[in-house]
Design a protein around this nucleic acid. Structure first.
Lengths: 337, 337
DNA sequence: ACCTATTTTTACAGCGCTGTAACTTCACCG
DNA sequence: CGGTGAAGTTACAGCGCTGTAAAAATAGGT
């Protein structure tokens, strides 16, 4: 059974192909009679519109790529979910692109094939703003996350520094004074970690606490196992802290494990905070105090900016900050609780 | 700057469009001289092949859809990651389709638009085999997971029943006798839960243990929070168990929390097993004994079957079983440890 | 130098659809 | 009852690429 085409339907219904197209597309100005006749032909022949033809004719695919480092990291998976939801409301589907390394990030930016997707949502981790700016790009894209973006590029993120300050203040309010930081990549910290560290530092300084580099533990970014090992080693090496700001929830979960193994109680002996508020954060014991980005808003804004670009907007890059909040849970309870 | 097309390159290089196409495609029979000349033209004009045109001409898109219930569930996110890896080795990209409900599952099966993807990997949860068989499908697809598949459809899965038996035997070897099961959906259990329950039951019977329905706790499938609540209520209601087989790792994590809240020690008082061996399983404390599907193999086989279908194979459905293993960890340690 | 076999290149006809612009039809009005 | 404008419909030219088949160029003998 050869595939049924628009023209077959047209012939069968005795109308022009364009009219069939109009019916399929739901164009308003089609008389009820014609519409019914065409619809019958469609049903009788079992016609299905072919997206490839349409894509070529319209120059659109109604697909967006989401380029995230690694879907196995819950934060990205959960964010992808939200983006998929919001995008589907506008009739867009999502193409997965796991970047997983600098080369792949570069490849995504300068994809040598056009026309696959209408736009890209990209969370760079390894690439710097300048490098991003250099790569030509024929597809509209919007950057997500903490990496600073070049002038011409849209960018949506939360205020990491402010959030980190907030975390420190939360801990200080709890009476903690020796506040460590866990999860800095080594030897080169990611931009994400950098910003969070800056906020951490600012938070300490704001309260007259000295920044003690021995309290900064590297290793274990977005990797609970590694975080557990790193923190474990640090603890065994004499790390004396009464709170730990973790770079992300996975690091925090690793921290929980390392502490539990050593009989250190959370939050009694050491308070812990995570970051991202992944679903799991509320289910572990103790549940994690964490920074939650307003991801619905993040997705909404990022897609709006992207859609504008797709529609031809070509102005300067817009940099948008979406809200975040500190969710206090057992690992570093609110002062009231 | 109007987009550069194949024909522009051809003109610029003084060759036919097909020759340019041959160069771009890496076709062997192109003389070095011509190839160089064309390549120069490509570089000079900044030409990028347009996928839409190619898709239409070839009738392929080199994209596959992965239709999973919910990416926020770590097992699916991690599986999607593996599939993406394997697929990309064959030059395929992945389109995300979160099914999230029976209607969407149905929509995915009988998608009324053709030509978006070359094939679909589908893990149905709500749809039954008969329903799946009824839906016409113009795109090749392969089913993943436990739901039984219709005769004409390929299907890759692990042996859930055997794995569940194995779990029970592991617990019995640990000396546990009152083995509960947590995470059955209510009122209608998913096929997944059904199979695991069957295996659970078989395992018990094999050791002369009575199946006690009061030990079967419903609620909390793939939802740690709900699992914690369900189990908590059961415990408070007098559930007396010395081991709990959880439907999945998320349920197990919920169980850990519920038990910890009540001061019940794991595994001393109650041993716990999970299922899926998500990344987190090894990082929580106690780490989770879990069933690990050989997901690399799962992805590999599923894609191979799918590729065969895409290449025109039209035989009966193949049903393949891939391996699994029980990973013993702290929550239900091996007898040797 | 001539013929055959092979490599390299080309012309051309689509793939299946939509945008444009123009055409036809029809209701409505003066 | 012709004129006007909107509603409904259509012909046609692509969108950018590749498959086919055949022509042109080259190589390999004798």
């Amino acid at each position: 059974m050869p595939n049924v085409r628009l023209s077959d339907v047209a012939k069968h219904a005795g109308v022009s192909t364009k009219t069939v197209s109009n019916v399929v597309r739901g164009y308003v100005h089609v008389s009820p009679g014609t519409r019914a006749r065409v619809q019958r032909a469609i049903d009788e022949l079992g016609y299905r519109p072919n997206a490839r033809g349409r894509n070529l004719a319209t120059g659109r695919t109604r697909m967006l790529a989401v380029a995230f480092p690694d879907l196995r990291i819950p934060y990205f998976a959960e964010l992808a979910h939200v983006i998929a939801q919001v995008a589907s409301e506008s009739g867009y589907r999502l193409l997965l692109e796991e970047s997983g390394g600098p080369e792949v990030e570069r490849a995504i930016l300068s994809a040598d094939e056009a026309g696959i997707v209408d736009g890209v949502l990209f969370q760079p981790v390894w690439l710097t703003s300048t490098e991003i700016a250099q790569h030509r790009r024929d597809v509209p894209f919007v950057l997500l996350g903490e990496n600073s973006a070049p002038l011409g590029t849209d960018h949506v993120h939360i205020d990491n520094i402010a959030a980190a300050v907030q975390v420190v203040e939360h801990l200080v309010a709890l009476g903690r004074r020796r506040i460590a930081f866990l999860g800095v990549e080594s030897p080169v910290p990611s931009q994400t970690s950098r910003l969070r560290l800056i906020g951490y530092q600012q938070g300490l300084e704001r309260h007259g606490l000295r920044v003690d580099t021995s309290l900064i533990v590297s290793g274990g970014a977005a990797d609970a196992g590694a975080a557990s090992a790193s923190l474990g080693a640090a603890l065994d090496g004499g790390l004396a802290a009464d709170a730990i700001v973790c770079r992300d929830d996975l690091a925090a979960m690793g921290a929980l494990r390392a502490l539990s193994e050593r009989g250190i109680r959370v939050p009694d002996d050491i308070a812990i905070t995570g970051w991202d508020d992944i679903t799991m954060a509320s289910s572990v014991r103790p549940s994690l105090t964490s920074i939650r980005a307003d991801s619905a808003q993040l997705a909404r804004r990022a897609l709006d900016l992207l859609f504008e670009r797709i529609d031809g907007f070509d102005g300067l890059g817009r940099h948008e900050v979406v809200g975040h909040s500190l969710v206090a849970r057992e690992s570093a309870p609110g002062t009231t609780s």
